[in-house]
């Protein structure tokens, strides 16, 4: 069953079309990511789903309830949890008090449980302003999760975090999935979308450019597996070309061989070994980065810009 159905959703700000006829569905218990560069319309899309923005046209349904119908917005708000983009809780309230604020707003009673689940019970008395970046984000997630929402919206939950804190946040998102929550995630981190999502929609300039399960997207658009050799001379490269492999010699001296399957990979290594090359390549599977490059024609930087 669909937790979210988005139909031809459009949002315009004057002449600017931030979201342009976007449609997708999110099933119950699924982690769905909107992946795209800054300004692509990810936040506008989720804020429409969160009943924080009114669409110009089109509609979206949360558990069958239309976000356009102001008379049922309160019902939608009772079943969602939201972590806004660049969220910072109240600096001079403690961890407990900040989550209590969200719990009061949602009339929830599972405050202690959420704090324990997210490992915040021990630091509940600490002022929010004194916490590390990772803990701060964890408090934000706790504020989104209190009240056991059926659908959780996490808008760029790891932006600005160091790698360790980012991985820690991923753990909590995975745990959410295990608990059966439906999660809608926006991100510009390829790795994040790839590792956490069941399905991904790549959104650029307000439009969905590609959408589907991560594996099928990679299979469809990602291309071949890359074997990266640090030291391989021209003779070996030429020999592999003659055998029909796609070989690229990079200015750095690296040689990249693209293979379509594990058997091709084995064939490359056997051929090299038979010529006396005992080399061990770095194997790079195709990923969302390749999908993005293939679909959009640009790369996405770590700061969320198209390059």
């Amino acid at each position: 069953m669909e937790a979210i159905v988005v139909e031809e959703l459009t949002k315009k700000y004057g002449e600017l079309t931030a979201v342009d006829r976007v449609s997708f569905k999110v099933s119950e218990g699924e982690v769905f990511s909107l992946l795209g560069p800054n300004g692509a319309g990810k936040t506008t899309t989720v804020e429409i789903l969160e009943c924080l923005r009114t669409p110009t046209s089109g509609d979206a349904f949360i558990k069958g309830l239309s976000v356009r119908d102001s008379s049922i917005v309160r019902r939608i708000k009772k079943i969602i949890g939201v972590l806004p983009q660049e969220f910072n809780a109240v600096g001079n309230l403690t961890v407990y008090e900040n989550v209590e604020l969200a719990a009061a707003a949602k009339q929830a009673s599972d405050l202690k449980q959420v704090l324990e689940d997210l490992g915040l019970w021990e630091v509940r008395g600490r002022m929010f302003s004194k916490l590390s970046g990772g803990l701060k984000r964890r408090v934000g997630i706790a504020m989104a999760l209190v009240g056991s929402p059926e659908i959780v919206f996490l808008d760029e939950p790891t932006t600005g975090l160091d790698p360790e804190a980012r991985r820690e946040t991923w753990l909590y998102i995975r745990r959410l999935k295990k608990q059966g929550s439906t999660v809608v995630l926006t991100t510009h981190y390829m790795e994040e979308a790839e590792k956490l999502s069941d399905r991904v929609a790549i959104i650029v300039k307000g439009r969905i450019a590609a959408e589907g399960e991560v594996k099928s997207l990679i299979a469809r658009h990602g291309g071949k597996t890359k074997l990266l050799f640090e030291e391989l001379d021209s003779r070996a490269a030429e020999m592999l070309r003659e055998r029909g492999f796609e070989v690229e010699q990079r200015p750095s001296g690296r040689v990249v061989v693209r293979v379509g399957s594990d058997s091709e990979m084995f064939e490359v290594l056997t051929a090299l070994r038979s010529m006396g090359y005992h080399v061990y390549p770095e194997i790079k599977q195709a990923g969302l980065e390749d999908v993005f490059l293939s679909v959009i024609g640009s790369k996405l930087s770590n700061t969320g810009e198209l390059t």
């Binding site: 969160e50 009943c51 924080l52 309160r74 708000k77 009772k78 969602i80 939201v82 972590l83 806004p84 983009q85 660049e86 969220f87 910072n88 809780a89 109240v90 604020l101 969200a102 009061a104 707003a105 949602k106 009339q107 504020m143 989104a144 919206f153």
Partner: peptide, 16 residues
């Protein structure tokens, strides 16, 4: 401050 930090947005996304 609360508007900028997203607290008002978070509150607005709840039934309050």
């Amino acid at each position: 401050d609360m508007k900028r930090s997203g607290v008002i947005k978070l509150l607005a996304s709840t039934p309050v």
